[in-house]
């Protein structure tokens, strides 16, 4: 309980810095955001390419630039700040992989992953959203190791379900059903 309070306090100060960047182009606030998020973004990049330190720097820099430019479009009522940063990092990773793949896709991912959130949620949805996130956080630690490992491969290492099944020498159906079980425990699935 005490720990979750400090983490929500930290989130509140991070949100305050984003607001200062948005409203006052405040570079000191931006430097605070840099100190907090760059090590995480680099870790996210290194999870996929463990030795690629320069790639990690490049990704972190790209995400921080987007934070600077998009700070005014961030709405704490629509998404948790950490989630917003995660989606920026994911989108930058997708861009990076597209630019550096042997066969370049003709599809620009920008509009595919951005702004799909609905307009402005009502108070009920806000409460629901916060509760959903708390559930995910508190239950993630209790997930069986076999399920947590697969989620980490999919989300952090950026593996497809097929690649995950090959690396873990598990049938594809097993990988899919473990993801499904994990999502159920975390109450991520709304309807199924």
């Amino acid at each position: 309980m005490g720990q979750s309070k400090t983490s929500s306090e930290r989130l509140a100060s991070l949100q305050g810095w984003v607001q200062k960047v948005a409203e006052h182009r405040d570079k000191a606030a931006f430097a605070e955001l840099f100190d907090h998020y760059v090590p995480l973004i680099r870790a996210y990049s290194l999870a996929r390419e463990p030795a690629a330190d320069l790639v990690a720097d490049e990704l972190a820099q790209e995400v921080m630039m987007r934070i600077w430019l998009k700070a005014s479009s961030y709405d704490p009522k629509l998404a948790n700040l950490n989630t917003w940063i995660f989606t920026l990092a994911r989108n930058c990773r997708i861009d990076y992989l597209r630019r550096n793949s042997r066969y370049v896709s003709e599809i620009d991912p920008t509009e595919i992953f951005e702004n799909i959130e609905d307009e402005s949620p009502g108070p009920f949805q806000l409460v629901h959203q916060t509760r959903a996130q708390d559930n995910i956080r508190s239950r993630l630690d209790k997930l069986p190791a076999a399920q947590a490992e697969i989620l980490s491969k999919v989300y952090l290492q950026g593996k497809s379900h097929q690649q995950t099944s090959e690396e873990l020498k598990l049938p594809l159906g097993t990988v899919k059903s473990r993801v499904r079980l994990a999502l159920k425990k975390l109450e991520v699935l709304v309807t199924r």
Partner: peptide, 9 residues
């Protein structure tokens, strides 16, 4: 939204 929250966590 929930899946993105999961990625974030």
């Amino acid at each position: 939204k929930h899946l993105n929250d999961l990625g974030s966590e």
